[in-house]
Nucleic acid binder design. Sequence first.
DNA 1: TGCCAGGCCGGGT
DNA 2: ACCCGGCATGGC
Length: 218
Amino acid sequence: MYDKKAILQDLYDRLYKAFGPRHWWPGDSPFEVVVGAILTQNTAWRNVKKAIGNLKAGNLLAPDVLYDLPVQDLATVIRPAGYYNVKARRLKHFIEFLFRESGGDLDRLLARDLGALRNELLAVNGIGPETADSILLYAGDKPTFVVDTYTKRILFRHGLMPEEASYDEVRDYFLDSLVPDVAMFNEYHALLVHLGHTFCVKRNPKCEKCPAMGWNDE
DNA sequence: TGCCAGGCCGGGT
DNA sequence: ACCCGGCATGGC
């Protein structure tokens, strides 16, 4: 049998073998990754793509441009992403933080130490743990682990974590079990999301995919 | 047609 | 320290 740590490496190996590389994050630049990370909060990516498409079409996908764009106008542009009023404010909060900290230079901001930058990001209104870790890993190439609803659900269904486990408990489980590697952490989270997309949503009696995964037992 | 999607905040116990 | 309502569009 596996010990609690080895099973996470085994899970990764199996997912990679089954699905192959996912080529994440879908985004052309670190700044686009940051914007996408905020826009995708509790939102399907296909809707985020429309919003990012709008930003690109208006040549708005740059820190200095968004800094000057009225929040009301920003909300209109990102409308397809949903929660557009709160997300417009959240984007503005990040942009203000970016200019306050590094004069709008994202590369310089991302050059900071992982632990310190994580705390600073978490202090920005609208950036929680998953958004912070997504930015750090996918825009900053830093060895942190991104935990989302799929991650928790998959670990819970396999009896690896209690359902009520906190974000940091799940994250620490990965960080304590795996040899730190940015490319692998990148791939691992993408594979977990892919598994979530592919096989199951919730423990739903009407879901035809759940029985095949043994997730509707009891 | 209702349910779900790559969360997070603020106010109330 | 939790718990919960609010935030909103688009696809299946």
